[in-house]
Design a protein around this nucleic acid. Sequence first.
DNA 1: GTCTATAGAAGGATAGAC
DNA 2: GTCTATCCTTCTATAGAC
Lengths: 210, 210
Amino acid sequence: MTEKDKLTEEKIFEAAKTVFSERGMDGARMQEIADLAGINKSLLHYYFRTKEKLFNAVFDDIARMMFMKFASIFAQELPLEEKIKYFFSEHIEFMKLNPGLPIFILTEINRNPARMKKLIEKIDYNSIWKAIWPELNEENMKREEPFHIKQDEISQIVTSAIAISVFPFAARNLLEPILLQTGQTFDKYLEERKEFASNFIIAYLKSHKS
Amino acid sequence: MTEKDKLTEEKIFEAAKTVFSERGMDGARMQEIADLAGINKSLLHYYFRTKEKLFNAVFDDIARMMFMKFASIFAQELPLEEKIKYFFSEHIEFMKLNPGLPIFILTEINRNPARMKKLIEKIDYNSIWKAIWPELNEENMKREEPFHIKQDEISQIVTSAIAISVFPFAARNLLEPILLQTGQTFDKYLEERKEFASNFIIAYLKSHKS
DNA sequence: GTCTATAGAAGGATAGAC
DNA sequence: GTCTATCCTTCTATAGAC
């Protein structure tokens, strides 16, 4: 009973995640979610009341998953260069498993900025920021040739790293046909990107050595 | 008469660009477009027949504007390092004037990949590719310390440059509140980004000198 | 070419039986 | 908890007067 409830609710939720992330809030249809879940449309309302409430539940879950992925990567205790390699390898692999995720998050944040405020307040972004900064500040000073990074640059570097990692997935349908015309595949491009992106960031950090 | 027609059609088209790029195909309402254009809703159908045809006209126009911007930047005859600086300065400035453009393009390409195929075929992407490659190949060899870039890396570098430039706008509503909490403004971040991004790319190219 | 009025379809939501 | 039937609103699209 409670077992069965949980099962139905779960099926609805999974179906909703699929449909919403493919079509977005506006493009999604309750009927399609019901069909995919293999249940009646009115059950959606029984469990989640309205389309918007269902969407919010889905959005929060997906956003939390994404932020947790970032947090778990940054939390790894590794030397900076290792961590950078680990970041791109893990993050690109993660998005290969969830390729629709970046554009979904970006689109919906854009359509409804208010949605973000709740989330930003909940997330301990400071722990992410600090997970990077101390390493540049402390570990760094023990190096033979320490990196010289101004604090303002941290946000530039971090957003660039995320951009490099996320953009290919957000722009996949633009990028893939162009790559094909030059004889490359998207998969090969992604594999090469793990190493390229790491070298890219590290090259910049090293260019700051005094 | 023809003058007046042109005016009405133009007003509709401008209004449609605004509404579609804010709300996307699915979220846009014909009524809102009509209101913004200051005309009757049925006139939309008189001039453009269906919502989809109107949307396609808008999408093609916006996409063409974007590609032309890229093309005009790459077409500049400048030494590579100057061109890189010029690219980020011009492109970021362009997007400051059209901040909703990146997420609009990315979202709609994602929702309807087929839309892209027509466009890709029309665009002479080869001229863009070649506008970069020869410079690394020819101009480059005259340098005292030429860059050593494999051809496969070109796509990695170019997509990274675009990612670095575009991502802040696509993720603005996520980025801005976080920046504010660390005492930075989005505008200041963007201004700094022009120089940062250039240095970033150049540092990588220089790291390849033998 | 522009408007009013309305058709026609789709989609979210609810009532009520089981 | 799950289904059928249906309400009601919204939206695209068209008919027809001016």
